[in-house]
Amino acid sequence: MNIYKKKRMLRKFKKENKEVLDLDITSLLDILVILLVFLLKSYNASDLKIDLVENMSLPNSRSTTLGNQSIIVQVNRNRKIFINNKLIGKYKDGVDTIPILFSKLVNSKIPSNISDKNIIKTKTKKINIVLDKSLPYKVLSRVMHTSALAGFPEFKFIVQGKYE
């Protein structure tokens, strides 16, 4: 067999053996559809994004009202106070306002992307209060009192939805 014949046969062999690998993605699509359904179920239409701090258990509630984005004050089981997820100090028993909370709220900055003055006026009055369910009313009372004096008289208590 001469060399040209050999080369021709090799080329023919390569041509005939070119098979396109067919990937069966039906099962992958199955998984994705199920995942899609699950995520659609847990879709959240509210613009409020809360990262719960450590040692925090929210009380259950029948409320179905969705929250709106504004300043978030969290007080966990260990009585640590957080504003927008930043630890500012620990709650101490007292009579009047919580001084660290008051000073931070008064100095809290208005987000730079809000330009409409009317929006600024309404948005800065609201405050989202996230408290651990085991805390006594006196903690809630002082947080509300401090917030109201700092210019946030519209309280929104953040709770966990309960399905009956």
Binding site: S61, M144, K156, F157, Q160, G161
Partner: peptide, 12 residues
Amino acid sequence: QFVDIHEIGSDA
């Protein structure tokens, strides 16, 4: 959101 968050409003 895997934790169902809602709010209860109250004003001073």
